[in-house]
Design a protein around this nucleic acid. Structure first.
Lengths: 232, 232
DNA sequence: CGATTTTTTGATGAGTTTCAAATGATGTGG
DNA sequence: CCACATCATTTGAAACTCATCAAAAAATCG
């Protein structure tokens, strides 16, 4: 099969020749350097995507300039499917945090892709459902928990979402496979970089986290779990 | 057509006889008194629903007992579609706040209903998408805004969602067509009933809101809008 | 009219943001 | 290869918002 742009994509693994060609039609592979934006909040929603490699962050900015990181996109996930929801424009900005590569379809291929790969419908609906769940979970955390457990929850969630991509750190801990600043973590946990810095510094002192500039090393996941429950 | 359980449901208005019968198969109409729960967080997700009349509130409770109102269900909306997301159990509790009636399908009818009324797929995907949007919006508000603008945003959103059901109040304002306590509003805005009470009392004094026990009367929407933007 | 529910109001303190500044890392160009 | 600019993080102190505790007032219901 010439230029099989879909190889290595689990979602399309079971796809036979004809359907495969339908899905691949008008698809291209885009690549992004760290900091580059794939689309910006408010852009017309004329494409949808699947992340092949790398890591993206999806952010929303308020009218007052405060920003919130809505989520991190890991390889193998669909994203930017605003077209599927009949949206005119993207509700968020999507930018690479490491070198990344993504499959890009023009908006009008959405129906074609769905009917060629019906399992994709299921997969997209479930993906949205999970995102909704996660949003509700975060909503609950944000409003009922204090800063420390929120950050603990966040780090554990990021670790789970990174899945097997999370690289094992030397001392038995786990390191997130992409750089995150304290500011990023603050934007994800609804806090400020100052508060996050204080919290994480204290965890480093206790040996719960490893230290590193723009790195997150979870040395002792069990201790973090404990912090999510008990507040202190 | 005998016992046409689907009449008055916009979603199924354009449905012809045969499809209509498929959708109606095994459907029943449930009714609920205020305070009665349709399903409780953790229950097996064996049914899905469409609200015909009344008003429901969907709540989640944390391990520590704090509760959060996820949303209010208005007539004409699908809800409890956990089955569609392949969930085993409902992630929230759903209870009536006024006398309500809802269409109830057993879980296994989901696929049948979808294929008989394909537009429903679209409508459900969009509904979930909107909920996701709303969740993100609330997430942003919760984390970046202070209590007063959060409550203001909430009230305006409830007004919009209630749509034409919102009854016009005598003095030119709008009243939400269902009772809400300060505690409810606190649970929706991530605050406490004390804080909400203070905030709303001050708005009443300014003439932005009308007053009433378990009532929400928006006397001056424009003033509320202003509060959402400027904080003060 | 007494019991219950809902709302109001005051006082206090904890937790976070904000403001300010210093320290530590990283990379670059001369 | 070092000096310097930049970026990231840490830390301190003060201000402030909001949750909590406590209690009373107001509305509703039987």
């Amino acid at each position: 099969m010439p230029d099989d742009i879909l190889s290595d994509i689990p979602q399309f693994a079971g796809l036979a020749g004809p359907e495969r060609r339908v899905v691949a039609a008008e698809t291209r592979l885009g690549s992004l350097a760290p900091g580059e934006a794939l689309f910006v909040q408010g852009d017309p929603a004329d494409r949808f995507f699947l992340l092949k490699d790398g890591r993206l962050k999806v952010t929303q900015v308020t009218a007052e300039g405060q920003s919130l990181i809505v989520r991190i996109v890991n390889p193998g996930e669909f994203f930017g499917f605003a077209p599927a929801l009949q949206r005119e424009s993207y509700p968020a900005t999507c930018e690479a945090i490491v070198d990344s590569a993504a499959l890009v379809w023009p908006r009008h291929r959405w129906e074609a892709v769905l009917s060629a790969a019906p399992s994709v419908t299921q997969s997209v609906v479930q993906a949205i459902g999970r995102k909704l769940d996660e949003a509700h979970t975060r909503l609950r955390e944000m409003t009922t928990e204090e800063a420390a457990p929120r950050v603990a929850h966040l780090l554990l969630r990021l670790q789970v979402e990174a899945g097997d991509h999370a690289t094992a750190a030397p001392d038995g801990g786990v390191e997130l496979p992409y750089p995150l600043t304290r500011q990023d973590i603050a934007d994800m946990s609804g806090s400020t970089l100052h508060t996050v810095s204080r919290i994480m510094a204290s965890w480093e002192a206790q040996g719960v986290l490893g230290r590193g500039r723009r790195k997150v090393i979870i040395a002792d996941p069990a201790a973090l779990e404990k912090i999510t429950a008990t507040e202190e």
